[in-house]
């Protein structure tokens, strides 16, 4: 019953997880297919670009959330971190006229600082992640309110280079989406191939066993929250670049969408299993639903209900799959 065990028995789990990604891809293709059949313009260049634009930020945040959820944690503060980072970056760009290239590191730094705060409260203060990040959700939003007040950063205040970064693309793929996908791949490799990444799975599967096996739990937890914060911070920069308008409410309530994307993407909310690929597909699926509704002329009021139903369906499916897998393994075990 240790983590080593989960490595050896992972063929089954791998299969299940791959099925999950496959299932998401099937759902995506079906949805896009139906929508396109009803309105061919849904697959036009412009429309696909728009979709990728819209998915970029959620994708990035879902990536960070995956890392945290893997350790049985949660980060509810991502929306506020995004807001803070977007505002700080936006005002730094408009006030100091600093070069656009500094925007990304600045946003990352703001986010990483918030993530460090979360990690410290959780690790050193022994505060449950739900409570800690709920608290920082309020506190950081309050800080944004203080900083921004009633002001708003308009597109005309931002350097053109920054806005071009927000709206430009290479070969039809927006820069923003490319950044998100690169990050997603990097985090995926980190989780799958590196010791520190595997440790996060171990911590989520069985914290006690992981500790006994010598995993530095505290350091790994800090890594997870700093990473989640930093990606939310980067998300803030992308947000500012894409919309050009930043006010105190940027990213408000976004945490729900991100948690939904992660859960739909097959990352188990009690830790230990899931991939960034799944979470990315989850984010993409939610964005496609969001964009398909107006095209399909479905009342936009249904959107939130659909998201909720998807979350319930996804966790119920996870449960079913894991129960079956466990039963199958037990049966296999009894034959030996």
């Amino acid at each position: 019953m240790t983590t080593v065990d989960s490595r050896t028995g992972s063929t089954w789990l791998d299969l299940v997880l791959r099925f999950r990604a496959l299932g998401l891809i099937v759902a995506l293709v079906a949805l896009v297919g139906v929508t396109t059949a009803l309105n061919p313009r849904f697959l036009s260049g412009q429309s696909v670009r728009d979709l990728l634009f819209a998915a970029a930020v959620t994708l990035l945040l879902a990536c960070g959330m995956t890392v945290v959820v893997l350790t049985r944690g949660i980060d509810l503060s991502v929306g506020s971190v995004l807001g803070l980072s977007a505002y700080v970056t936006g005002s730094a760009l408009s006030a100091t006229g600093m070069p656009t290239v500094f925007a990304l590191p600045l946003g990352l730094a703001v986010g990483a600082a918030c993530g460090t705060l979360n990690g410290a409260i959780i690790h050193f203060g022994r505060v449950p992640p739900l409570v800690a990040t709920l608290g920082t959700l309020y506190v950081l939003r309050g800080v944004v309110y203080f900083a921004a007040g009633g002001s708003r950063i308009n597109a005309s205040d931002l350097p053109p280079g920054f806005l071009d970064f927000g709206s430009g693309d290479v070969l039809g793929v927006p820069y923003l989406f490319a950044v998100s996908v690169l990050v997603l791949a990097a985090v995926g490799v980190f989780l799958g191939r590196y010791r520190a990444g595997r440790d996060l799975y171990a911590l989520g599967s069985n914290p006690e066993a992981a500790r006994l096996a010598g995993v530095p739990a505290g350091r790994r937890l800090m890594t997870a929250y700093v990473l989640s914060g930093a990606l939310a911070g980067l998300g803030g920069v992308l947000y500012a670049a894409r919309f050009g308008t930043v006010d105190a409410s940027a990213g408000y309530g976004m945490e729900l969408d991100v948690v939904a994307a992660v859960v739909v993407g097959g990352v188990a909310i009690f830790g230990g299993s899931g991939t960034t690929l799944g979470a990315g597909l989850g984010a993409l699926l939610l964005t496609v639903i969001d964009n398909a509704l107006p095209v399909l002329r479905i009342d936009q009021f249904w959107q939130q209900a659909i998201v909720g139903a998807l979350i319930l369906a996804a966790i119920a499916l996870d449960r079913l799959v894991s129960v079956r897998a466990a039963r199958a393994l037990r049966r296999k075990g009894s034959h030996v």
Partner: peptide, 19 residues
């Protein structure tokens, strides 16, 4: 209806032009 939210208005515009 963009609900007076920047992001929603943005994607509603998108939806309008597609539809």
């Amino acid at each position: 209806y963009g609900d007076d939210e920047d992001e929603k208005s943005f994607s509603e515009t998108q939806g309008l032009l597609q539809a």
